[in-house]
Design a protein around this nucleic acid. Structure first.
Length: 422
RNA sequence: GGAGAGUUGUCCGAGUGGUUGAAGGAGCACGCCUGGAAAGUGUGUAUACGGGAAACUGUAUCGAGGGUUCGAAUCCCUCACUCUCCGCCA
């Protein structure tokens, strides 16, 4: 959620930045400002009435103590009139507040100055590429054939147990998942991230904090009997660890990592890239999250990009890094880098990580603050990224490294997996 | 699932309707004292949102939300969480 102070201070800038997203905000911003203005006027009026009531109540207390019953009764009548006024004002106030909240929640985050203009994924800007694309012979298979051939992932039985899009990993397929999770977590903790294992279900307030609610309600599995949501990413519970807290300078930066399964309904997603492990309802992911001082956040973002990039280098996968354009960025993000790996038999780039700076968009909702040197509390910036999402990494590893005698593993995994090939 | 007890400021802890934003203590900060420190001593020590150039000031906040009342940390209702016992259970 954008900070109203910032909108108030520079509405022109807000409008201009939102236009980078192709988000027509001019009317909305003006309406928000107008509502904010009325809101505050009424608030002042209501509060000064309340101040009168409070003062009168004290007087009544004093009168009663002295035994001036009649005076007290008269005073009570005055108060009754004031209270009627207050009731009127507060009705207006809550109507305006609803209006205000409804509107400000519709505003997405302001794109950073470096966000390229553009409408869709086609307009994303290539930052750099790394690794080498393998040359496969003509008998090379897509990963969905390989996992079937070796019986590493059984989609049919997964479908029997839960439904389509719920893979059942098996044998070395299951072990590879465990290996990758372990490898990613070790890599992250070595870089100073603290490992967490959060709840896989969250309540409404938590889902709201990171911005999944109210917009993306339909994308999460909802356990209505208990009012809980299955997490679509570890970002949700882990970022909320510090919600409504004021951190000390010495606590910063907060660096957290977590492995969790991720659950996504992905309702209404169609297209050609849904085969095999490309898009599923449940998948595994290791996430990195930081809470940092505002002045450091873009430096930290670059550091997180390097961190993820190095991980892909260790996996020896061909990758590219894209800077998302205004039209393709998520609602909550100010700047996002997407990482894609090249999946050789599909001849396709698959997104495996997304590293974003949310600035104060999430922390404003969650009220995650710190006390600066001047003793003033201010919102932190939150950032996160995948390191990494497993299914597409597995798809690329299998496709790119297939041989007649099985799939070769990158050196970094040999010790973890206990073998050089699958 | 059943029964009971709790939830107060950074922490401990008092407070059952009227200057209680909240006693007392600890901690912390600053000062005095000291050669230095400890002890002692004095002062200060929440957050959010408004108004104001500022000094300052208004409102709200004692788990959360509602209610009663001129007035609620205190009374009533709903919910959440914690603890103890019983049941069930990996």
């Amino acid at each position: 959620m954008l900070q109203i102070n910032n909108i108030r201070q520079n509405p022109q800038w807000v409008k201009e930045r939102l236009s980078v997203r192709n988000f027509p905000a001019i009317d909305l911003v003006d309406r928000i400002l107008q509502t904010d203005d009325e809101l505050r006027k009424i608030k002042v009026a209501a509060e000064s009435l309340q101040a009168m009531v409070n003062a009168a109540s004290k007087e009544i207390g004093a009168m009663m103590a002295k035994g001036d019953k009649e005076l007290a009764e008269n005073k009570k009548k005055e108060v009754a009139a004031l209270k009627a006024d207050i009731a009127e004002k507060s009705a207006e106030l809550s109507a305006l507040e609803n209006e205000f909240n409804k509107n400000i929640l519709q505003l997405p985050n302001l794109p950073h100055i470096s966000v390229p203009l553009g409408k869709s994924a086609e307009d994303n800007v290539l930052v750099r590429e790394g690794g080498r694309k393998p040359t496969l012979n003509s008998s090379a298979k897509p990963h969905w054939d390989l996992i079937k051939q070796y019986d590493w992932v059984d989609f049919e039985t997964g479908a029997k147990l839960a439904g389509s899009g719920f893979p059942l990993y098996k044998g070395k397929g299951a072990k590879l998942q465990r290996t990758l999770i372990q490898f990613f977590l070790d890599y992250n903790t070595a870089a100073g991230y603290t490992e967490y294992m959060p709840p896989l279900m969250v309540n409404e307030a938590t889902a709201y904090g990171t911005g999944q609610l109210p917009d993306k309600e339909g994308q999460m599995y909802h356990i209505t009997a208990d009012g809980l949501y299955l997490i679509p990413t570890a970002e949700v519970p882990v970022t909320n660890v510090y919600s409504n807290e004021i951190l000390k300078e010495s606590d910063l930066p907060v660096k957290m990592t977590a492995y969790t399964p991720c659950f996504r309904r992905e309702a209404g997603s169609f297209g050609s890239d849904v085969r095999g492990l490309n898009r599923v309802h449940q998948f595994d992911k290791v996430e990195i999250i930081q809470l940092v001082r505002p002045e450091e956040s873009y430096e930290v973002l670059e550091e997180m990009v390097k961190h993820v990039e190095q991980l892909l280098n260790l996996l020896e996968l061909p990758y590219r890094i894209l800077r998302l354009c205004g039209g393709d960025m998520g609602f909550t993000s100010a700047l996002t880098y997407d990482f894609e790996v090249y999946s050789a038999s599909q001849q396709k780039w698959l997104e495996v990580s997304s590293v974003s700076n949310f600035e104060t968009f999430q922390t404003n909702r969650m009220k995650i603050r710190y006390k600066d040197e001047a003793g003033k509390s201010q919102l932190l910036h939150s950032l996160n990224g995948s390191s990494l999402a497993l299914p597409r990494i597995v798809a690329a590893l299998l496709e790119n490294n297939q041989t007649d005698g099985g799939v070769l593993l990158p050196k970094a995994l040999h010790g973890y997996f206990g073998a050089e090939r699958l």
